[in-house]
Write a protein that binds this DNA or RNA. Sequence first.
DNA 1: CTGAAAGCGCTTACAG
DNA 2: CTGAAAGCGCTTACAG
Lengths: 342, 342
Amino acid sequence: MTAPERNRARRTRPRPTMDDVAAVAGVSRGTVSRVLNGGHNVSGPALDAVRRAIRKTGYVVNQHARSLVTQRSDSVAFILSEPQDRLFEDPNFNILLRGCTQELAEHDITLLLTIAGTHEDRKRVGRYVTAGHVDGALVISSHAGSPLLDDLEARGLPFVACGRPLGRERDVSYVAADDRGGARQMVSYLGSRGRKRIATITGPLDTSGGVDRLAGYRDVLGEVDPRLVVTGDYSHDGGAEAMERLLRQVPDLDAVFVASDLMAVGAIAALHRAGRRVPDDVAVGGFDDSKVASTSVPGLTTIRQPWARLSAEMVRLLLNHLAGDAHAAVILPTELVVRDSA
Amino acid sequence: MTAPERNRARRTRPRPTMDDVAAVAGVSRGTVSRVLNGGHNVSGPALDAVRRAIRKTGYVVNQHARSLVTQRSDSVAFILSEPQDRLFEDPNFNILLRGCTQELAEHDITLLLTIAGTHEDRKRVGRYVTAGHVDGALVISSHAGSPLLDDLEARGLPFVACGRPLGRERDVSYVAADDRGGARQMVSYLGSRGRKRIATITGPLDTSGGVDRLAGYRDVLGEVDPRLVVTGDYSHDGGAEAMERLLRQVPDLDAVFVASDLMAVGAIAALHRAGRRVPDDVAVGGFDDSKVASTSVPGLTTIRQPWARLSAEMVRLLLNHLAGDAHAAVILPTELVVRDSA
DNA sequence: CTGAAAGCGCTTACAG
DNA sequence: CTGAAAGCGCTTACAG
């Protein structure tokens, strides 16, 4: 089917316009518009007549016409610039998404979820988002150097990022959990439990979660034996592989701080296969407090990210942005959650 | 921030319009429009000039203005009318979503994911979708009697459902896996392995997956002891509870057909707790072939839904709909996947 | 192949 | 409080 064909098909069902409701209400189009936009400066009888006419005709505003004059769409994009799988694996995105949707709904703004996992997706989404479809964007993208941010910036589209945008802190608004502080909490806790040989499995070092959590680890332990530090990829299997590497490099380790819960669960599986008991032989601390943390056996001691507050702050910042405020950053505190693994 | 304030803020960054590019290209607005829409009936030099002008000005079409005249938005909604959690738990939605996105991208149509888990969400989404934002919708909604379908229908918005819309088969387009046939495959297989006392855990009976898979079970076994049939809610814990009930009602069962993989995994956990071995004492068959089926221990014997084909067919039907075709239904065959649980 | 003009359906000063 | 009118940024017959 070609575009003209689709066009023709749509034309067959004409929707009532404002003129239609004005006609049945016996008022002018301007009056109809006024009741639609709050009903200020409209007499009681006129208000009633218009409302009745709207119901009778089944009128719904044509958003394109409205947006053309207001220069607003009253919707913002939630851009997921991650491989899609990660989204669906992580219930925290769920919480974030729902939180943002609700916050925005209170301001009569619709949230559109767009997924930009592949390079091609990102180009398409960039085009969509800058074509006036949305007033702003919430972008979730952990890896540094995403060209998407450049696109948005070049277009002057207001947006706020989730997580510290490596190397872009000065010019983009973001809200993030205190990754570094959280890591410090966990590593300090492991030390307070008498652990002497504490290793770490970091996230990818082009993500803020990778570098900041490692920085927090170093804040507590200083310069450590480099064999204690191994980099993972946030995945379950990646965590298991990293753990195996650690066991080879430093067989005498008695604790490990893992930069994500998913990797931590993989690490625990690897420890079991190697005959090490958790936490007796090796204590394991995660990060995120995602769903697996509470369902895995043993329960995972971890750092909780303040998901609900993150979404609230993201929306607040974006609204401020839309109102013309300069960019800003918000760092939210984390919380240690003790379960059985450490 | 009020709407007028947002408005004012947006006005401060004027975007180039078609007139701007026409001016720098030294042609009329009409010519610019023609190159934007395929470049037919435009001379080589004019084409070049316009393209250069577009690059120079950084012009991006104003989609609202375009949609206002074409009466199309070139985007369709993917409406998830489920409690949000389920989406994020089930990797199959992932596949479906990605498949639809790609199919549509080939037709230059953007897919917007909207989540309508709560009643309030559904109303908001209904309004959004019928305000002209999208040309059509793909709706995922398993429960019967969703008012969303009525809204869409009343507005004349073309849409296609995923899964048989109970009681609405005659007036709504849908594509579905052959739930009934798949259930028959599984129950026949259990019988062929020598199982004599085959129970079933159904899905909710206001979903097509609930009734159709039960119907398939009955197709093979006829009228059975009613204690062999128990209804679950598609969740892991619901599956476990249903299994416990079955063990109480019919302790001598030697097989169970469970209407979803997630429930099946819960059922297996309950069997273990009761000291029954799987598949030695009790064979367990699932439905969906979702991720848990291959990662659980033992691996789950199940019925695979044709996710990729489902998305392709949904898009095809929707495009036909947009072109004015009448509604239609497509049923796709399933496949038995044998692992260890049966 | 190209331009001038009408029109898509709204909002919003501007008069009254 | 209300109407007439201009204008948002496009597309598309219509002439030429």
